[in-house]
C-alpha cells in the first residue's frame, strides 16, 4: 500500500512532464519567409496624399472590414492662420468616399492618412492580459483572434486609436500590415492602391530599401513621439498641428 503510493507520486509528475515534451511537437514554418530577416514599417508622404480614399477602400476589401470600422483612415486637417493649436479635422466615413471640396480659405488644408504605427514598444501589447496581441519577430503588431477575450484594454491603450472590437468576432481587430501579403512578397493593399505613392511599405532590415536614404535626407516624424512607443509609421512633411 505504502510502496504503491510512493511509486505513484514519483512516476505521475515524471509522466506528465514527459507527455508535455512529446506533445510540444514542431510548429509549421513558412518555407521562403524568414521573420528574422525583416523589420517592417510604413512611410507616409503627406505632401503626396490627395485624399482619394483608395487606401481605405482597398483595406476594407482586402481584409473584409465591416462598414463603419477602419484599419486605416484618412483625415483632412484645416489649420487656420492664427489658431495653429486647434486644427479642424474631418474624416467622413474614414475618407472612404473622398472629401467634400475645400474652398480656398484662410489657413491651410492637408490630408493625413492614419493607421497602426506598428510600434516596437507598443502600449497595446503591454496591457493584454492573455497574450493575445504581440509584436511579431518581424515587427508587426498582430492580434490572435483565438486568444483574444475582447476585453478592449488594448483599444483603450492605443494612443493612436487604431484598434476596435470587431462587431461579429467580438475580438480586438487592427491593421495586420497585410501580413498575409508581405509574407508572400507582395506589398500591402493600401500601398498597392495608392495612386501617388504617398504610402510605402518599408523593410528596415533590408539594406537596399530606399527608406534608409529617405530617412537621412527628409524631415521625418512619427506621431506622438513623446509617448516613446517606437512607432514605425514614418510621416514625411507632417505638420505640427497633427495629433
Amino acid at each position: 500500500m505504502n510502496l504503491s503510493r510512493r511509486h505513484f507520486l514519483v512516476l505521475a509528475p515524471a509522466a506528465a512532464i514527459a507527455w508535455k515534451a512529446v506533445s510540444a511537437g514542431t510548429p509549421e514554418q513558412s518555407p521562403n519567409y524568414k521573420t528574422a530577416d525583416h523589420w517592417w514599417g510604413m512611410l507616409i508622404d503627406i505632401p503626396k496624399c490627395i485624399g482619394c480614399g483608395n487606401c481605405v477602400r482597398a483595406c476594407a476589401t482586402e481584409n473584409d472590414i465591416p462598414d463603419g470600422y477602419f484599419r486605416t483612415w484618412v483625415e483632412r486637417y484645416h489649420v487656420e492662420d492664427e489658431d495653429m493649436t486647434n486644427p479642424q479635422v474631418i474624416s467622413p466615413d474614414g475618407g472612404k468616399e473622398g472629401f467634400p471640396v475645400a474652398a480656398e480659405d484662410a489657413g491651410k488644408y492637408f490630408f493625413v492618412p492614419k493607421m497602426c504605427n506598428h510600434c516596437a514598444d507598443s502600449p497595446c501589447t503591454q496591457v493584454c492580459p492573455v497574450g493575445a496581441t504581440f509584436v511579431s519577430p518581424d515587427g508587426v503588431v498582430l492580434v490572435d483572434p483565438k486568444y483574444c477575450l475582447g476585453c478592449a484594454y488594448c483599444v483603450q491603450a492605443c494612443p493612436y486609436g487604431c484598434r476596435y472590437i470587431h462587431p461579429e468576432k467580438k475580438t480586438a481587430d487592427k491593421c495586420t500590415l497585410c501580413y498575409h501579403r508581405i509574407t508572400k512578397g507582395l506589398t500591402t493593399a493600401c500601398c498597392e492602391n495608392c495612386p501617388t505613392g504617398a504610402r510605402q511599405l518599408v523593410d528596415l532590415k533590408n539594406p537596399k530599401d530606399p527608406i534608409h536614404e529617405f530617412l537621412r535626407t527628409h524631415p521625418v516624424q512619427v506621431l506622438k513621439p513623446q509617448m516613446a512607443t517606437g512607432a514605425k509609421a514614418y510621416y514625411n512633411g507632417l505638420d505640427g498641428s497633427v495629433r
Partner: peptide
C-alpha cells in the same frame, strides 16, 4: 515559441486570402 503568445497565430493570419493580385 517566440514570446508570450501563440506562435502559430502568425501563420493563421498569413493564411488570409489575397484579394489584390498586385
Amino acid at each position: 515559441q517566440y514570446g508570450h503568445y501563440r506562435g502559430d497565430a502568425m501563420s493563421d493570419i498569413a493564411a488570409h486570402p489575397v484579394k489584390f493580385a498586385g
